[in-house]
Design a binder for these strands. Sequence first.
DNA 1: AGGGTGACGATCA
DNA 2: ATGATCGCCACCC
Length: 107
Amino acid sequence: MTMEARILARIRKIPRGKVSTYGAIARAAGYPGAARQVVRALHRASDLPWHRVLGAGGEIKLRGEHAFEQRFRLEAEGVTFRGRRVNMGLYEFKFLKRKALRRKKKR
DNA sequence: AGGGTGACGATCA
DNA sequence: ATGATCGCCACCC
């Protein structure tokens, strides 16, 4: 299974009304520190609950109209905000951690 | 090999 | 709270 597939699988696990973060998804997929790869996966795939993915602290990282769109979708699912961020204490979805996967050895 | 790119993240002024 | 800095990681020239 590819790194991207594992990451996407995690994203699809986030239930309606709940959210997660780039970093948490990367860790849950077995790739701590690979938050940017989560972004990459989100860009390449479609039919994903993309709006449930936020930056650390529950902050929306999109710009402009897209940011509004994300907030709109989340509020439609019942997720509330406190200022610019969502109340992670109430809405963060907890994944069962997973041991880091071995990355390919360099040469 | 070298340099650049992101919907990142932690830290510090 | 906000911006800069630096570390991070797979990819793509």
